[in-house]
Computed example of a mutant assay.
Amino acid sequence: MAGWPVVARLPGALAQSSRPVTIIVPYAAGGPTDTLARILAQRISVGLGQNVLIENVPGASGSIGVGRVARASPDGTTLSIGNVGSHVFNGAIYSLPYDLLNDLKPVALVASNAQLLLGKPGIPATTLEELITWIKAQPRAILIGTGGPGSAAHLSGVYLEQHLKISATMVPFRGTGPALQALMAEQIDILFDQVSNALPQVRAKTIKAYAVTAKNPSSVAPDIPTTDAAGLPGFYVAVWHGLWVPKDTRASVIASLNSAVVDALADSTVRARLAELGQDIPAPDQQTPQALGSFQKAEMEKWWPIIKAANIKPE
């Protein structure tokens, strides 16, 4: 760390302030969003020349923590890190006291983790096409595990149900960890989970992986085919993460924050740590505030109709 240069400093009042920069994680400590935030914070602090702290504000599927940032002072010292759940899905599931597009401004897209389409070990299918045939041949609705209503695993399951025009029963768990255990025990048939979380069990052959839900193979699991290659073209689901600030934050402050994030994502140590977690770093032209804003809107246009058609409600 001692050799890392200071490449960006926040302008104006913040540059003269003793207040640290705080990244609000809208989930509990120890989860994937928290881990990602802590890796980034260490490196961003060097770029900004200021301490960067992590504060966990869990609750209501991330909506409480995001709301804290939406109401924060727009001086660049409070950032929201979140994912497709907190900054896309929640807008269609909850009656939020803030607007995800208008009360927050994007800073940067930071990483993306594709999902794996997983099956219980007893399924005879060895390929995705065989799995689809097996699913459609079942005399009952297949059981798809979820990490709770509105989770990425839940929305992926609903998307599969709609995509294949099948009958499925969503089985909620308190997170994808317990759902993964249920899959191994053959209490459910199908589960979608992030590459970083499920890959150890796939390698141990306690579950089956049929495809990566992305256009490109996973860097940590290149042997698992994409949905395009395996027979389910266009079926893409990723748990991506980004950073946002309150809506009235000055453009110059956002530019400096973005510069520090871009520098962090270019650092070899950060890239190695994210690669270990199965996180894919976006291309440089996708790391701009404008790119995140456009991507977030496109994800809303894709997922909100699916959520509303499935009548997904908060617990």
Rank of each mutant, 00 (worst) to 15 (best):
L180K: 11
Q201S: 15
P172A: 14
Q187T: 14
L199K: 15
A198R: 14
D193N: 15
Y210E: 12
D223K: 03
P222G: 06
A185H: 13
A211C: 05
Y210P: 07
V220M: 06
P172I: 13
E186P: 01
N197A: 15
E186T: 00
S219G: 11
V195N: 11
D189G: 03
I190P: 08
K215N: 08
P172Y: 13
I190D: 06
P217G: 05
Q187G: 06
R174F: 02
Q194M: 11
I190Q: 09
A179D: 07
L183I: 05
V202S: 08
L183E: 07
V220Y: 00
N197T: 13
F192T: 15
I224M: 09
P222Q: 12
V220H: 00
V220N: 05
Q187F: 00
K215S: 11
L191T: 13
F173P: 04
D228H: 10
A198P: 10
P222E: 06
P217K: 04
K215P: 00
D223V: 00
D223L: 01
G175R: 08
T206V: 09
P172W: 13
R203D: 03
K205M: 04
T227I: 02
A211I: 03
K208E: 05
R203F: 00
N216V: 15
L199C: 13
G177C: 01
A214Y: 08
G175V: 04
N197Y: 02
I207Y: 01
V202D: 09
A221R: 08
G177W: 06
L191W: 10
T176F: 02
A182H: 12
S218W: 04
V220F: 01
T226G: 08
K208D: 07
I207Q: 05
D189P: 04
I190W: 08
A185C: 03
R203L: 05
Q187D: 13
L180R: 12
I188Y: 14
V212A: 04
Q194P: 03
T176L: 01
T176K: 03
A198N: 12
N197P: 00
P217Q: 06
A179W: 07
V212L: 00
K215T: 06
A211E: 02
L199R: 14
P200T: 07
L199H: 15
A198Y: 12
A221G: 12
A185Y: 05
L183Q: 08
Q187A: 14
I188A: 11
G175D: 11
Q201C: 00
V202M: 05
I224T: 10
A211H: 06
A209D: 07
V212P: 03
F173Q: 12
G177I: 14
S219Q: 15
L183K: 10
T206W: 03
Q181S: 09
Y210N: 13
R174V: 12
V202Q: 10
P225E: 10
V220T: 15
G175T: 04
L191Y: 11
K205C: 01
T213V: 04
N197W: 00
S219C: 01
A204L: 04
T226N: 08
A179M: 05
A204Y: 01
V195G: 05
V202L: 03
